[in-house]
């Protein structure tokens, strides 16, 4: 089984976000970058599936040279090889087009992604890639198993879950619970240095949208403290002042 795992290099979850003076991009100085946490879950599940059934895991990212540490981390965790499409991602359509092109050239049985990146929170790439390849997709999945050429996944729905079945090839996006991320060991880290990392050129696609500026939420005014023995006071304030109950 050949699995392609899409990974994204994102600021560590503890990062305080700041932007460049023109507000158009993230200020990356002093920011630690990690594998997007959902992508790490997807990668771990891909490794578990190939360890059981046999096969190969390739990771792909669309990004410039600065994303290579994150790719090496994925290789250290256990991916067999990697593809880096050498471009700064413009929008989801651009990124999905690059991944779809790589997928077309290599015939994967399964494409696994994190359900969203924690920087742009779009949850767009998995479904766009599936649509471009004209194959089925199951998104926001907490469980994934594969039996022969058929996958079974448990996906989240409002107030519950749905168990679905679908033939391969397909795209699946991973949410929390699908697998517990692994920490690379010394042997993994050493071997990651020599695993193949192909750098490819991006295909050009029309620009459909772009971020014209970021801004940060306004801070809240000072907290109003209520004595612990007067919970009815809180209820009153929520009713008369905040008007939320």
């Amino acid at each position: 089984m050949k699995i392609l795992v899409c990974i994204s290099s994102v600021p560590d979850t503890t990062t305080k976000i700041n932007f460049t003076p023109d507000n158009k991009s993230l200020l990356t100085q002093g920011v630690q970058f990690i594998i997007n946490p959902y992508d790490e879950i997807a990668l771990t599940r891909a490794l578990e599936l190939t360890e059981k059934e046999g096969g190969k895991v390739t990771v792909i990212t669309v990004g410039d040279h600065s994303t290579e540490p994150v790719i090496r981390k994925a290789l250290a965790v256990g991916a067999n090889d990697a593809i880096r499409v050498d471009a700064v991602p413009r929008d989801a359509f651009f990124t999905a087009s690059q991944i779809a092109k790589a997928a077309t050239e290599n015939n994967y049985d399964l494409i696994l992604c994190g359900h969203e990146s924690i920087d742009y929170n779009g949850a767009r790439i998995p479904s766009m890639v599936a649509e471009m390849l004209r194959i089925p997709s199951v998104t926001i999945c907490k469980k994934l198993t594969i039996e022969g050429k058929v996958l079974t996944a448990e996906r989240e729905i409002e107030g519950g879950k749905e168990v679905v079945e679908c033939p391969l090839p397909a795209v699946v996006s991973a949410s929390e619970g699908m697998a517990a991320p692994r920490i690379p060991n010394m042997r993994g880290i050493m071997s990651a240095r020599t695993k193949p990392l192909a750098v490819t050129q991006a295909v050009d696609v029309p620009k459909l949208s772009e971020v014209i500026g970021y801004d940060k939420p306004q801070p809240r005014s000072t907290v109003q403290l209520i004595p612990a023995d007067q919970p009815e006071k809180l209820i009153e304030l929520l009713h008369t002042q905040a008007r939320v109950i």
Binding site: L26, N121, K216
Partner: peptide, 9 residues
């Protein structure tokens, strides 16, 4: 954007 830490226009 950035999981609630910012907004994107």
């Amino acid at each position: 954007a950035f999981s609630g830490k910012a907004f994107a226009n």
